[in-house]
Amino acid sequence: MEKKKIRKELKVSAIENGTVIDHIPPQSVFHVIRILNLDKIKNQILFGTNLDSVKYGKKGIIKVSKKYFESEEINKIALVAPTATLIVIKDFQVVYKSQVEIPDKIVKFVKCFNPNCITNHQNISTKFDVIDKEDLKLHCHYCEKITKKDDIDFN
């Protein structure tokens, strides 16, 4: 048991500096890569999916060298991978670790699902209140319609 734990720690620390996004639902790994635009950056990236997880059965993981995420990016991760853990690595050491959290308000980066919403026609930042975090539901501040989990699309 002790040995296993150490091995796991090593696995996570295998980058020198950067961020590890762990415990991603396996089906969301590529989604996370896309919404964070990780396919367009020059940093070294390692990722795996359908890995064994004690907690969730199967999981995905993404390790990005020399990259530390802004809070807006962390909020994006929370929306598509609510179980994800964010681990910040400096000099091979874990300096910060926490589970992502769905925020109460979401500004700018999610599109309103209502095609007739003013935010889809004029240059206006979207604003949502998160009215349900379990079964994700976003209430648009402008059109007052609800964008549900499966309808979420990012700007």
Binding site: N114, N116, C117, I118, T119, Q122, H141, Y142, C143
Partner: peptide, 22 residues
């Protein structure tokens, strides 16, 4: 379009009365 009046009320220096937004 829905939400137009809310947006207008946020940028307008004078008050807005919504007479129907979508």
């Amino acid at each position: 379009q829905e939400g137009s009046a809310r947006y207008a009320s946020e940028i307008s220096p004078v008050p807005i009365i919504n007479a129907g937004d979508g």
